[in-house]
Design a protein around this nucleic acid. Structure first.
Lengths: 212, 212
DNA sequence: GTCTATACGAGGATAGAC
DNA sequence: GTCTATCCTCGTATAGAC
């Protein structure tokens, strides 16, 4: 008796679910290698579908990439809008913003690397213009208010904002690099470590601009 | 009369000079795309020699990559050894270290991106273990001394050090991303801008850990 | 909507002339 | 030590069956 050629069980036919699964896997892969380094093959493998599905749903690799960025940015924007950054006290506003930003990152730690890659590899060709504005503008505004009110030092708000973001995201961008600083076995993405990083980053951010 | 087939004038035969030119071009290329994204072809083009020369002199792409990292790290180490980081006053030591680090970077602004890539793409497989130690150990030591002496806040020295490095290098890692924050035409790598960044980063670094 | 099979281009690496 | 020509693998993308 001829054994029926066992093919892959064609998974449940649910376009939206498949798209989401692909997006999640892609996010992970793009975070590792950027648009250039990501392999559609390995995204497919992670997702559990075939490569063709990626092209079916997203056209081409760049289409998938754009979709990932788009989803990420809209989440960011939504989160910012829920945050109280217009508090009269600029110190509280700054604290709120950074705190929320870091909580978002600890929930999805792939994003810093993705946007980093986007800037360096593609020079922001795809999206980061918007992402940048939505991230930096609030910080710059808060810093200006802080300086005017006399609570913050007389910093250059643009440079200060860039440096603050750097302080917040570097840890997540460099996990595999910096993890060797801690004893072997320490998980830099454990809740404890992420919370510790958040606490330190918030403290240092505020201290870095406050009048002393 | 038959025109002699004009070939490329085989450049001056100077192995060392050629190797250096290749290394310089490679540094630039690796800074843009990391080991994965760099194209031997375009390194060769920048250098003005053919692809084969790369393989002749460095064996393969990874060999070239290692050579670039090696050169960079040895420069870093040499620079650190010339810096007064053992000053009795931890504030001065920290200022010295960061100031020197940033001056080095402004002289070769490719390095942050290269080491960033190395960490994220190759997980430090090639070199950064050493690079990391040579960079972070001094900072951590200074922070410990500062906390013990009561001049610095009671920070977690490892997290604080990571955040400080992030504050210093982020600007250089993200030039093409953040440059849109300034008026069009502003050159983020001009001496004025680099100096401004250095001043702000030093100030913020010190303020971020100092008792207030 | 999902799979298999395959075309095709890009890029790392080698062979061999000069 | 440098160049030209070529090989071969890998990875994006498409065609077509189910």
């Amino acid at each position: 008796m001829v054994p029926s050629p066992k093919k892959h069980a064609p998974a449940i036919r649910d376009a939206e679910a498949t798209k989401t699964r692909i997006l999640d896997a892609a996010e992970e892969e793009f975070a590792k290698g950027g648009l250039l380094g990501a392999r559609t093959e390995s995204i497919a493998a992670k997702t559990g579908v075939t490569k063709s599905m990626i092209f079916y749903h997203f056209g081409d690799k760049e289409g998938l990439y754009s979709a990932v960025l788009e989803r990420a940015v809209s989440q960011r924007v939504a989160s910012i809008q829920k945050t109280d950054i217009h508090n009269i006290d600029p110190e509280i506003a700054l604290k709120n913003f950074v705190e929320t930003f870091l909580r978002d990152l600890s929930g999805n730690s792939h994003l810093p690397a993705i946007f980093f890659y986007e800037g360096i590899q593609n020079k922001g060709r795809f999206y980061s213009q918007i992402a940048i504005t939505s991230l930096y503008t609030p910080i710059v505004d808060i810093l200006r208010r802080g300086t005017e009110s006399g609570k913050f030092r007389d910093v250059d708000p643009l440079h200060a904002a860039v440096n603050i973001v750097g302080m917040c995201v570097f840890y997540y961008c460099n996990i595999d690099n910096v993890k060797h600083l801690w004893p072997a076995g320490t998980n830099p993405l454990s809740e404890e470590m992420k919370e510790m990083h958040r606490r330190m980053a918030v403290e240092q951010t505020v201290a870095s601009v406050l009048i002393r």
